[in-house]
């Protein structure tokens, strides 16, 4: 028997990376804190020195939270000379927050995301939409990054990053390109009716068989996602300035449709490949900020 070896490409696989922002040398006397955000799909760690971001990592969450946390913070420290003992305070957050072994304290993501967004974009941020791997959060906050209203959606992976990974694989389009490809339609198709990833996949296959292009199928799914997110936002109310965090902040197809439905633009995405901060680290960043505050209070 001869088996045909097909080249298996992992279209869903997104880039893990580490970044060191400043070349400044840290000293033992500095207040070094960290935030570790173990999400359902991605694990992020941010290292802060005296309240300024020094380095961070964005990694994929494995099957076990403690290992994912270790990997994230290990990668954020790589090449910096830092060791775990140098940290004055570490805060764990996210879905796996209680399983961050090196953390001094676990804090719910309710408090962390807004603090992070406030640091990335400044005190004018009032509404945050966080689209993570398996859930969506809509948050309202004041000028200090203090939360006034918080919403977490019920549905499983529907309309989240994980759903996009499934579609990337199904349509064989690299995950980084999916947003742009979804915009290559002359007019917006009807959104897919189903919001469960498993059913949406079946529906999408049906549409492909009917002769829909990949672009059109993606547009329909992305539009369904955007409509759902806007419904969640309406529940907490939308006030400017509006920002999007989490992995889907990089999906231009989702972002463009949300802006169109809401009639307001989000604050521009920082140039995270350059010197800016990645909106994916908002939770971990907020945790690192809270870690510094908790350390100072304990003195």
């Amino acid at each position: 028997m001869k088996v045909v070896q097909e080249g298996k490409k992992e279209y869903w696989r997104w880039q893990e990376y580490q970044k060191i922002l400043s070349s400044k040398n840290w000293e033992k006397s500095d207040i070094i804190t960290a935030g570790v955000d173990v999400g359902s799909v991605g694990s992020k760690a941010v290292v802060m020195i005296n309240g300024e971001v020094y380095s961070w990592s964005v990694t994929r969450t494995g099957s076990n939270s403690p290992d994912s946390a270790k990997k994230a913070i290990g990668w954020a420290m790589e090449g910096t000379g830092l060791e775990l003992d140098d940290f004055k305070y570490i805060v764990g957050t996210g879905y796996g927050r209680v399983n961050v072994p090196m953390a001094n304290k676990a804090v719910t993501e309710i408090a962390c995301h807004a603090k992070g967004a406030n640091h990335i974009w400044g005190p004018t941020v009032r509404t945050i939409l966080d689209v993570g791997g398996q859930d969506i959060k809509a948050i309202r906050c004041d000028q200090t990054g203090r939360v006034t209203s918080f919403l977490m959606n019920d549905k499983c992976a529907a309309g989240t990053g994980r759903g996009m990974e499934v579609f990337a694989d199904l349509l064989q389009i690299p995950i980084e390109d999916i947003g742009e490809v979804s915009l290559r339609v002359d007019e917006e198709p009807e959104p897919v009716s189903c919001t469960c990833v498993a059913f949406a996949k079946t529906e999408a296959m049906g549409l492909l068989r009917k002769g829909w292009s990949k672009e059109k199928v993606l547009a329909a799914y992305t539009r369904a996602m955007a409509i759902r997110m806007c419904a969640l936002l309406k529940r907490v109310g939308i006030e400017k300035d509006f920002v999007i965090t989490g992995g889907q902040s990089k999906n231009i197809g989702v972002v463009t449709r949300i802006e169109k439905i809401l009639g307001i633009k989000r604050l521009p995405m920082p140039n995270w490949r350059g010197g800016g901060l990645d909106p994916m680290i908002a939770g971990a960043l907020g945790a690192a900020i809270i870690a510094k505050a908790l350390h100072e209070r304990s003195k």
């Binding site: 004041d142 209203s149 919403l151 977490m152 019920d154 309406k234 529940r235």
Partner: peptide
């Protein structure tokens, strides 16, 4: 103390439900 209102629920084609 200022308020933090938490919402857990959904908005979909059937309407909305939140705790």
């Amino acid at each position: 103390m200022k308020q933090i209102i938490t919402h857990y629920g959904y908005s979909d084609a059937s309407g909305e439900y939140y705790v």
